[in-house]
Nucleic acid binder design. Sequence first.
DNA 1: CGGGAGCTTGATAGCTGTCAATTTATGTGG
DNA 2: CCACATAAATTGACAGCTATCAAGCTCCCG
Lengths: 275, 275
Amino acid sequence: MCLWTSEFGSRESADVPESKRFAELEIELALSLHLNQSNFLQVRFSRLAQLSDHEAGIIRMVEARGRYTYRPDNRILSEGMEIRAPHVVMSGWAAKSRQLADGRRQIVGIVLPGDAIGLCSRARPLALTTVVAITTVKTVEAGELLTAWRDPTRTPNLAASLDTTAAEDEHYLFGHAMRLGRQTAYERIAHLFCELEYRLSSRGLSSGGSFNMPMTQETIADVAGLSVVHVNRTLQQMRREGRIELARSRLAILDLPGLQSTGEFVPPRVSLPAE
Amino acid sequence: MCLWTSEFGSRESADVPESKRFAELEIELALSLHLNQSNFLQVRFSRLAQLSDHEAGIIRMVEARGRYTYRPDNRILSEGMEIRAPHVVMSGWAAKSRQLADGRRQIVGIVLPGDAIGLCSRARPLALTTVVAITTVKTVEAGELLTAWRDPTRTPNLAASLDTTAAEDEHYLFGHAMRLGRQTAYERIAHLFCELEYRLSSRGLSSGGSFNMPMTQETIADVAGLSVVHVNRTLQQMRREGRIELARSRLAILDLPGLQSTGEFVPPRVSLPAE
DNA sequence: CGGGAGCTTGATAGCTGTCAATTTATGTGG
DNA sequence: CCACATAAATTGACAGCTATCAAGCTCCCG
């Protein structure tokens, strides 16, 4: 269990004075133009659906924006606070979490690069969970995605993609409840690793079952509803059995079919292909 | 743990031969006209938002429709199967559930009267969970709600109501994960009872913390991620402490503030009031 | 009135948590 | 490149919550 001390630390770009924010945005923008010649978002969405030129242009524009940067343990959203604008994670991991008065914390979802934060269509929305950066997280504002979702007339494929990702998120959340309620520690971690592998590989962030996995054992514990000690012992058992390698924030799933089987991981199937 | 035997039993109206279905629909319709002079849905939606005449007319029309009837343990939706049309529950309780190969079952959400089933905006949607009737469940088809949600131009208040209920469902699902991952048996059941009381009271189905609660202890166990035996012992402890009365499918929460406190139940706040 | 589902109880096992100490990484400054 | 400081990972001992097994009981219903 993590005794959560609410330490905000230095949050860049977001929730800082305008003057500083703009300066940092410029730096970030400059950096992204030089180093982040990334087409990560374009790749992600083009894998979700065939986009029209208009839609692809929206994605390119969003992707070219300045980054908001959050340091580990900074809050990206706070439960109950108003959501200003939707963002998309360009790099880094975050955790959607809830906590109890005595400090017990439950992570209810992992936010990976390419995931949206605060993308919801109701008016004046409040955050339903607290979103905390696990690593350094870089996001871009993406109000256009909300527009495209709510009014799909000119952006049907983009809207369909967002429908799909929203439904997949719901699928993972149901799977999370299943894990927490009815699976053993070993099964929970197996299931979790398979989910992460599946989600990352579809974004080109995992190859051959091996990927960057920047969660500490305490974070894994808060996801899996376990204690750190038990997570540690379970991981070692998986290592002993030759099913994973995990060191220096890098996870290699050596026996993916095996882990999928013991964890009973089922990839999301949320809709039939358009006829 | 419930060793789930997939027994479909006799499903009325839905998924039965057309001839029989129509006959039963007529009977249901007749019954509803005579006995179910219900304005349940109108009341429910008028509490969610101020509806226009046009919108209220939609609700009235939906509510006047023939009922689909499901017997206890019948499946209303099956995970992975295509969703034909959205329905709204007019009476009875159902459970959204997932199960593991060895029969372990986790209920991931309780469906109460007034809740929608299969209301999602993506094209050709597949059910993400299996929905099983707990009691006899009566539903009406409500394709209009989907229309009103996807194209809110003529139905802005109805669409906003559906945004709200969808967000509240998400809130409850996050709370469910919190319960399962980080709360003790006693806290889980307290939290669950408070959630049910809150949701039912807003629909006029609970008064003074007392309501019809047709779940067996085995069902409660499948919601709370516990064994039947432990649910039984926990309920008795609550009774001994004078915090609840539970008999013959009727739950009376005698100490609602106390249970809310131990369960740390937080009612959903999903959006700010329109300015 | 029989039968069965649901509820209750006792005994026992075991998975997982807690506590505490040690070892190993990671990162920083000189 | 090394020393130090801190976070993270590891290990052992022990406790305890919850599951399992088994049996009896109660209530509802045909």
